[in-house]
């Protein structure tokens, strides 16, 4: 019983990480239909931003305040990845809308450039980010079951990011403009919306959220220039399985992959578990090619 519960918690924890890395992609790929292979590198940028923030704190700020650096690091990661995303959109992506194959290749190239950039600045070996003291240890819920604070923190962080994204996309004026442009670009322009500005802001926000994911990932282990490549496939899998274009789809997608993956791995072993997850996903997409959550409406003619 305890083992099952612990597996469930692990599954939810894995789901939360999957969801965090996929949320940014849910915007750039889900809403904007840009196949952004450099998404993983934005995660990497967020991770290194956290690393730099930590270095800054250790050398400039009294040690007493070190514990707070992580909160600032989340914002810094978002900001840095946001700026990178913004620049990438106005310099490259905007020429590639509606050309999925070209954007796939071009963003992959950008990803390689960014990896090399990180290698040149920070060196090829992995670096470790020291988690703040208040995230060490865990919560003992019952005998033999300890839930690490880091994992709980990531789950909470995902919840906060998800809520913020929901409020932004579905409740704010900017979000309404965004959805209007993604659904009907031409008509949105005719109503007085600058589609160019909406495009670059949307892409930048998606990239910024990838940055937050990178920040969270520093809690799980050391980081390196090719960090993003480990996560890019998972991120696409979550968005495609969840259903393109709906935020809630990504939530179900991440939960599905995270929880089933954890249990498969527990029942078999790590590699067979992964294979089983892939098989289930492929079978599911044969049955429902549009993913878990699809948009239904009376068809427009």
């Amino acid at each position: 019983m305890e083992v099952q519960l612990l597996q469930l918690f692990n599954g939810i924890s894995v789901s939360s990480i999957l969801l965090l890395i996929a949320l940014g992609l849910a915007i750039t790929f889900g809403l904007m239909n840009v196949i952004n292979m450099a998404h993983g590198e934005f995660i990497m940028i967020g991770a290194y931003s956290t690393y730099v923030t930590q270095l800054f704190f250790t050398s400039n700020i009294p040690a007493d305040y070190f514990g707070y650096y992580f909160v600032l690091a989340i914002l810094v990661s978002f900001a840095v990845a946001f700026i990178f995303g913004f620049v990438l959109e106005i310099s490259l992506i905007r020429f590639l809308y509606g050309r999925p194959l070209d954007s796939l290749l071009a963003t992959w190239g950008v990803g390689l450039v960014l990896q090399q950039l990180a290698r040149s600045i920070f060196g090829a070996p992995n670096v470790a980010v020291q988690a703040p003291a208040w995230l060490n240890g865990g919560l003992e819920v019952m005998d033999g079951i300890i839930l690490p604070y880091k994992r709980l923190f990531i789950i909470a962080l995902v919840a906060v990011v998800l809520l913020a994204m929901y409020l932004f996309i579905y409740r704010s004026n900017a979000g309404r403009r965004m959805r209007a442009v993604m659904q009907n670009r031409e008509m949105a322009a005719c109503l007085g919306i600058s589609t160019r500005r909406v495009d670059s802001m949307t892409f930048a926000i998606g990239s910024g959220i990838a940055g937050i994911a990178g920040c969270a990932i520093t809690l799980l282990g050391s980081i390196g220039p090719s960090l993003g490549t480990y996560y890019i496939v998972d991120a696409f899998m979550v968005v495609v399985l969840g259903g393109v274009g709906k935020l809630i789809g990504s939530v179900f997608g991440a939960l599905g992959i995270g929880v089933t993956g954890t249990f498969f791995e527990y029942w078999t072993n790590a590699s067979i578990g992964k294979v089983l997850v892939f098989i289930v996903i492929i079978a599911f997409l044969q049955w429902k090619p549009k993913g878990l959550v699809t948009m239904r409406t009376r068809s427009l003619d």
């Binding site: 309404r176 959805r179 209007a180 659904q183 009907n184 031409e186 008509m187 949105a188 005719c190 948009m295 409406t297 427009l300």
Partner: peptide, 8 residues
């Protein structure tokens, strides 16, 4: 053709 935003 009206061009209503169908999902909104």
């Amino acid at each position: 053709g009206r061009e209503i935003f169908a999902q909104l």
